[in-house]
């Protein structure tokens, strides 16, 4: 009985110290919004970059395709946290951009490589006849790609893309390396004051879980909407 009482007591003290005392919950709220902003921005950058790179790779020859291949090799072959460090300290460090923006660019560039491969697979799964039909109507290659092929490709790979966005969101938790006050950093900041790691870590984990599950729900809703034409 006493043991049980001690645990509850430790927990409630922990919650008080972690969240309530000195308004410490604001570290988590601010961290949460930074994490959301970085995820959304980098997802947008990643999709745009991914589409371009996928099309460059599919065209198969020339300098653009070589650049695309090199980009994918380097980005997939090195850890995101190392890329983040390089982009922050070596490339954009003196640019005066806010650290949230630098992180968004870094994670966007990182995600673009994975998105490119996902979309390339989606484009290759679209029937060849679709391109021929578009071209035979007098549409250009890029008009056919944008209006006909890519919408079908994205529909094909929506589950894989959703997965990539969830991975991306979790990956942003290393943004603290360059001093971004993201959600994870918010948790460790609180812990460094209270010397209690358990409660902040559990809170941070729970908030990430909420974010990823809502993201998964949004993706499945989108999937169902796109299945109208089946």
């Amino acid at each position: 009985m006493n043991y049980f009482y001690d645990i509850v007591r430790a927990f409630s003290d922990g919650i008080f110290l972690t969240l309530i005392k000195d308004d410490r919950y604001t570290y988590l709220v601010k961290g949460f919004s930074s994490s959301i902003v970085i995820t959304l921005l980098s997802a947008v950058i990643g999709v745009i970059l991914g589409l371009l790179i996928a099309v460059f790779r599919l065209r198969g020859k020339g300098i653009l395709s070589a650049i695309a291949n090199g980009y994918i090799t380097v980005i997939r072959g090195t850890p995101a946290v190392v890329q983040l460090t390089i982009i922050y300290f070596v490339i954009l460090g003196q640019s005066g951009l806010s650290d949230v923006l630098v992180a968004s660019v870094a994670f966007g560039i990182n995600s673009g490589a994975y998105v490119a491969e996902i979309i390339r697979a989606g484009i290759m799964a679209v029937d060849r006849g679709q391109m021929e039909a578009g071209r035979s109507l007098g549409l250009s290659y890029s008009q056919t790609m944008v209006s006909i092929i890519i919408p079908q490709a994205i529909k094909n790979v929506l589950p894989a893309l959703g997965n990539e966005f969830i991975v991306l969101l979790k990956e942003t938790s290393v943004a603290g390396y360059i001093g971004v006050k993201d959600l994870n950093k918010g948790g460790t900041t609180i812990a460094s004051v209270t010397y209690d790691y358990m409660v902040p870590a559990l809170c941070v984990a729970y908030i990430y879980l909420l974010m990823t599950t809502s993201m998964a729900a949004a993706i499945s809703k989108l999937e169902r909407r796109m299945q109208r034409s089946d």
């Binding site: 029937d127 006849g129 679709q130 021929e132 039909a133 035979s136 919408p151 079908q152 529909k155 034409s229």
Partner: peptide
């Protein structure tokens, strides 16, 4: 042009 497999845009 009209194709054997129709090639309508399914979306």
């Amino acid at each position: 042009m009209v194709f054997q497999q129709f090639n309508l845009f399914p979306n």
